[in-house]
Design a protein around this nucleic acid. Structure first.
Lengths: 176, 176
DNA sequence: GGTGAGCGTTCCCTCAGGGAACTCGGTTAG
DNA sequence: CTAACCGAGTTCCCTGAGGGAACGCTCACC
């Protein structure tokens, strides 16, 4: 939550960052997706201030990333579950985890493994092209303006579009 | 930069989040990778306070994510370039962008397209299994403790490891 | 009817962030 | 030679977000 409203920028990264670019939000989403869905458990697990946790949860519910659900009636108790929108943040978490594993794992290795149930293997995430399945890296991609307008400050869009790198037309020129 | 040192947690997500879970850092990395590498250009593009920008850049250089490089001598001028460690944050940016596009693109569509130079297609990122290439989602993955120790608060590791979901043995089918 | 769990809210205080002005080395203009 | 200029920070003051701890509220159990 910066002073300046990042969401005023048209760039999708800025939009996402406005929500997710908070130290706690990523950890909260990790926990909720993981099954730590109750207020008390979240405070204990994260060590976050109750005040901030309440504020973040409210925000995440407003954004439609979490829903508050009653999980028992006798003493009425609610918890927080990820919506589809929330679950789709999983790739972001995997990417962060992957990077953390690569660059910060100790000599004993990463603190967690991911098992892909479809193939049964312990694995890690790769970021691939939706068309050909090949890996997507800084060096084999270019960003082009999309159909949506992107005005205002911070509207740079990632990839070697600008400046010295000059990859201004990749295969075909502009968008219509 | 929270008050509490996230990097004290062993979880890779927490480690990564400690650096990246700052509203500006993601945007700075986007810009630098994109070719906006100079202090002045960054302030203009992001609208970030010069003070904070200087602090972030220093931090990112210390972390080995950026390097400061001289790009001209006559008036000595430096700029900032992504290291390999920095470039490997690209998947995180792509995941954020993808999510932002899916949930916040206006009626006109997303503000940018990504072209994969290897296949020539305009594409988007998918998060796939390094083994079988299938998509990785909340529902088809499980997290297991890894070899590295993971102690202290916030050491939950993402995936249905804990709590109500109880997927304590992996190969067996999904909960509920 | 006292205790305790679960889920917050309130209060106070510190420190990170925004804004704008100032510095400093080096360069071009007059 | 001095003045204006530019890029790249640094310093100063002020606001407001975050941490910590205490308080509140509702229901259940003994």
């Amino acid at each position: 939550m910066t002073r300046i409203r990042l969401s005023d920028m048209a760039c999708s990264i800025a939009r996402a960052t406005d929500l997710f670019g908070d130290a706690w939000t990523a950890l909260i989403m990790r926990d909720v997706i993981t099954g730590v869905t109750r207020f008390e458990d979240l405070t204990n697990d994260l060590g976050i201030s109750r005040k901030i946790l309440a504020a973040r949860l409210t925000r995440l519910v407003e954004e439609g990333v979490l829903v508050r659900e009653r999980y028992q009636d006798h003493p009425p108790r609610d918890d927080y579950r990820a919506t589809q929108k929330g679950e789709e943040l999983y790739p972001v978490l995997l990417a962060l985890m992957n990077w953390g594993d690569r660059w910060y794992a100790g000599p004993t290795g990463p603190p967690a493994r991911i098992r892909h149930l479809d193939c049964g293997q312990d694995t890690h995430a790769v970021t691939a092209c939706a068309h050909c399945g090949g890996p997507l890296t800084v060096h084999n991609t270019t960003q082009l303006p999309g159909p949506g307008e992107c005005v205002g400050p911070g509207t740079r869009v990632i990839g070697p579009l600008i400046a010295g790198r000059e990859a201004d037309d990749a295969v075909s020129p502009q968008p219509e």
